[in-house]
Amino acid sequence: MATRFGLQKWFPDFFDRFGAFTVFDLLVDYIKSGRIQVDKTKITGRIAYHDPCNYGRKSEELFGHGFFDEPRWVLDQCVSDWVDLNPNRANQYCCGGGGGTLLTPYKNERLTYGLKKIQQIRRSGAGMIVLPCHSCHSQIRTLLAENGMTEIAVKYLWELVADILVID
């Protein structure tokens, strides 16, 4: 998001000269075009999806499009039982580690922020959280460890895809 924002602000002609794709554009294109195949039977158990603020609410505001449907389409291709956290999409709660707070000394605050996320995850009944953001990944993994919930796995969306690639 920072790069896209910066390109639009300082290098607007970039988009006349080059193409630019998000992680979602690539995953959807590779799967739709058949360039990669995924095996939907490989993962059993319930997965919950977390919308990162930057790809969701903030992309919607800054770029006029929030990436809500694309990751859900990818999940539909990859697993048979996935659920949304509540609230979700534009009303999703921040993981509590955004805005660089993972890099500040305010760890107690960060863990407190995350209690809402922990509550959402508990209510979902999922054994795995899938998300497409490095900050959310670090924060949610820490939250689960701090709250004695390490039996719940955290995966990047592209990690999920990579794990179930059909290998000839």
């Binding site: 609410r57 903030k58 505001e61 509590g96 955004g98 805005g99 707070t101 605050e109």
Partner: peptide, 14 residues
């Protein structure tokens, strides 16, 4: 410390 406590999640302005 207020500016640094914010996670810039954007829910306020949403």
């Amino acid at each position: 410390p207020l500016p640094w406590l914010c996670t810039m999640c954007g829910k306020c302005e949403h």
